[in-house]
């Protein structure tokens, strides 16, 4: 088994899965119906990406696991998503900032992955990159409107930026498996995308009169299964039925 490729694919798939799961929690509760439909579209894109990536991960693993087996029958410490993806929705500003950070990172990442010599990964990435560019634009539009809206929205955006900023180091962390795949030319190093990320996000925030926090947080761990307190709770909800009925087909 190509262990490092398997791990890299679960990192990608778990990011989409866990963030998609979080966005599902908005369904029926968004600020207007139009925004509700928009957030559902983002979640549907992410769940679709997760299915493709985790199915492929299962094939690489060669143990007969598919996307559902990986999604519903692993424990928190076996999940390889970034810490940012699992953070609770919070208010709409926190959801927007979380998505701005993630989609800006992911659209650049998937653009590079679309040129991967791994044909299967390149094909998945070519589809995903179009979706993620839309996500990044969606989040940027909202960041601008909330940042330059009312006093209240501006304060909430500043708070949300500060809240999520500590997870950005983890977002760009190249763990051993990812670095091994990068050395083989299958994926780009995440660190190589960080400069562009900070430039793009800063430009968006600047238009809204906001700025990225300066403080450097050294937190990492998502890629190696050391998560925040929130992930196992999320999984307990998400996995309840397949765990309670392991023999069942749905």
């Amino acid at each position: 088994m190509d262990h490092s490729l398997f791990r890299a694919l679960t990192q990608l798939g778990d990011d989409s899965l866990i963030l998609g799961q979080r966005l599902c929690e908005w369904c029926g509760h968004a600020p207007t119906i139009e925004v509700d439909l928009g957030l559902s579209n983002l979640a549907l894109d992410l769940i679709g990406q997760a299915t493709l990536l985790l199915d492929y991960a299962g094939e690489v693993e060669g143990g007969g696991r598919d996307a559902d087996a990986l999604a519903f029958h692993r424990n928190a410490e076996q999940f390889a998503n970034c810490l940012l993806a699992e953070q609770p929705n919070g208010d709409f500003a926190r959801t927007v900032v979380r998505h701005l950070f993630f989609a800006t990172y992911a659209s650049a990442l998937y653009e590079a992955l679309a040129a991967s010599p791994d044909a299967r990964l390149a094909e998945i990435a070519a589809k995903a990159v179009k979706e993620l560019r839309y996500h990044a634009d969606f989040a940027a539009d909202w960041a601008e409107r909330l940042g330059d809206g009312t006093e209240e929205s501006r304060a909430r955006m500043a708070e949300a930026l500060d809240w999520h900023w500590r997870f950005v180091n983890d977002l760009f962390h190249d763990d051993r498996d990812w670095a091994a795949c990068a050395a083989r030319g299958l994926v780009p190093l995440r660190q190589s995308l960080r400069y562009g990320f900070e430039r793009d996000v800063s430009a968006i925030l600047e238009r809204a009169g906001l700025a990225l926090p300066r403080k450097v947080w050294p937190i990492v761990g998502g890629r190696s299964g050391q998560h925040s307190e929130h992930l196992s709770v999320l999984l307990a909800t998400m996995q309840v039925l397949p765990r309670a009925h392991p023999e069942a087909v749905w």
Binding site: I33, L44, T51, L241
Partner: peptide
């Protein structure tokens, strides 16, 4: 929506979300 976060497969989750989204669209 009460079962959306607990849908037992990824496909069922996507189908249910698309369906609930339709209900929102219809309300709109």
């Amino acid at each position: 929506g009460n079962w959306l976060t607990r849908a037992p497969s990824l496909q069922r989750k996507a189908i249910l979300l698309a369906k609930i989204q339709d209900e929102g669209g219809h309300g709109l």
